[in-house]
Simulated assay, not measured.
Amino acid sequence: MRILITLRRLGTGGIEQATLTLANAMAAAGHEVHLLVLKGQPTHHPHPDVIVHCRDLDREQRGSITGMAWHLLSRLVLAPLLPRSGFVWQGWRCSRAFDAFVADTEHQYGALDLILIRGQGAFEMLWRVRDPRAWQVVEAVTGRFSRNVLGRWLTRRLYQDKRVVCVSEGVRESLHAYLAEQRVTLDATQVIYNAVPIAELRRKAQETPSPAIPEPFLVHVARLVPVKQQSLLLEAFALARRQGMRHRLVIIGDGSERPKLEALARQLGLEEVVHFLGQQANPYPWVARADTFVLSSRFEGLGIVLIEALALGTPCVATQAPGGVAEVLIDEQRELMTEPTAAALAEGILKAVRSPITIRPAWVERFAEPRIVDEFLDLIDNSSESADAPSS
Score class of each variant (00 low, 15 high):
44 H>A: 13
291 D>Q: 12
327 E>K: 03
353 V>Y: 10
106 E>N: 07
132 P>T: 13
113 D>M: 02
132 P>Y: 15
15 I>Y: 03
78 L>T: 11
236 A>S: 04
232 L>E: 10
223 R>H: 13
392 S>K: 09
153 W>Q: 04
236 A>F: 03
1 M>W: 03
178 Y>G: 01
313 G>C: 07
328 V>L: 00
174 S>L: 06
98 F>K: 07
5 I>C: 11
72 L>S: 02
382 N>V: 09
44 H>N: 13
137 V>H: 03
359 I>L: 09
316 C>D: 00
157 R>K: 11
147 R>F: 06
123 F>H: 06
218 L>G: 06
302 L>I: 02
107 H>Q: 14
47 H>N: 01
207 E>T: 11
336 L>D: 14
183 R>G: 13
119 G>Q: 03
322 P>G: 03
64 S>A: 00
57 L>D: 09
198 I>W: 03
122 A>R: 10
217 F>Q: 04
333 Q>R: 15
137 V>E: 05
52 V>Y: 13
281 A>W: 12
142 T>W: 00
242 R>E: 04
282 N>F: 13
118 R>M: 13
181 E>H: 02
235 E>Q: 06
104 D>K: 01
261 L>Q: 02
277 L>V: 09
355 S>E: 15
45 H>G: 01
382 N>M: 12
332 E>R: 10
155 T>D: 06
26 M>Q: 08
97 A>F: 10
39 K>E: 14
186 L>M: 10
363 W>T: 05
186 L>G: 09
43 T>H: 14
10 L>P: 11
263 A>L: 07
124 E>N: 00
231 S>C: 02
47 H>L: 02
131 D>G: 11
272 E>C: 00
166 C>S: 14
1 M>R: 03
367 F>S: 07
132 P>V: 12
43 T>D: 14
189 T>R: 00
299 F>Y: 12
387 A>M: 13
264 L>A: 12
286 W>T: 03
264 L>H: 12
170 G>V: 10
367 F>Y: 15
338 T>H: 12
52 V>C: 11
294 V>D: 15
214 P>C: 07
357 I>R: 13
153 W>E: 02
15 I>Q: 08
195 A>S: 14
346 A>E: 02
163 R>L: 05
97 A>N: 08
157 R>D: 04
147 R>C: 07
253 G>W: 04
158 L>Q: 10
260 K>N: 04
179 L>N: 05
378 D>Q: 14
386 S>W: 14
77 V>K: 08
313 G>D: 05
324 G>N: 00
133 R>D: 07
120 Q>T: 05
356 P>T: 04
293 F>I: 01
107 H>W: 06
361 P>G: 05
116 L>R: 06
20 L>Q: 05
281 A>H: 15
250 V>F: 15
287 V>S: 09
186 L>T: 08
374 D>T: 04
321 A>C: 14
206 Q>D: 09
8 R>F: 13
374 D>I: 00
279 Q>K: 10
